[in-house]
């Protein structure tokens, strides 16, 4: 059983993807199936960027055991009023400057869903959002 934690600063795009990059290296060292690594990296990157783009700050907790990888992202931020709407392809509340960078196309949450085995999002407006992802290793 391994546990990792990363802190994510809201608004700091220069560091976006740092946690995903670290996890990718760790999973490679653990000889996890490259196909599984690819999916996890996509899901975590999108979730990480969501904290950078939308929240004030957040923390990522990663637990790896022989059966699965569990990732929990907890942010302090505006929260999501309508999660079902946010899950729709093409829906985004990203700012114009974030969109100009090529983010905020409303593809992040669909990417997370497509690249994780279990996804649970809970949110409180003006408090924050928690995203939980599970990926099974033996499938």
């Amino acid at each position: 059983m391994m546990h990792f934690e990363y802190h994510v600063e809201g608004g700091n795009f220069t560091k976006a993807g740092a946690a995903s990059s670290q996890l990718k290296k760790i999973l490679k060292q653990l000889n996890v199936d490259p196909k599984i690594i690819k999916r996890i990296v996509v899901a975590l990157y999108e979730a990480e960027v969501n904290i950078v783009a939308h929240a004030f700050e957040g923390d990522i907790f990663i637990d790896i055991d022989t059966e699965k990888i569990g990732i929990k992202l907890v942010d302090q931020g505006p929260g999501i009023a309508d999660i079902e709407l946010a899950m729709q392809k093409g829906y985004s509340t990203a700012s114009p400057s974030v969109r100009e960078m090529g983010f905020g196309a409303g593809m992040g949450l669909p990417n997370i869903k497509n690249n994780s085995d279990e996804l649970k999002i809970t949110s409180q407006v003006n408090i924050g959002t928690t995203v939980e992802l599970v990926t099974y290793l033996n499938q």
Binding site: F13, G17, E46, M101, G102, F103, A105, M107, N115
Partner: peptide
Amino acid sequence: LSDVMGHADAGNAWITLQTHKN
């Protein structure tokens, strides 16, 4: 960026006008 993240494959050359670190 999320389009590339979701759909590009390893070994692809990425053609874009985006010029930032991400």
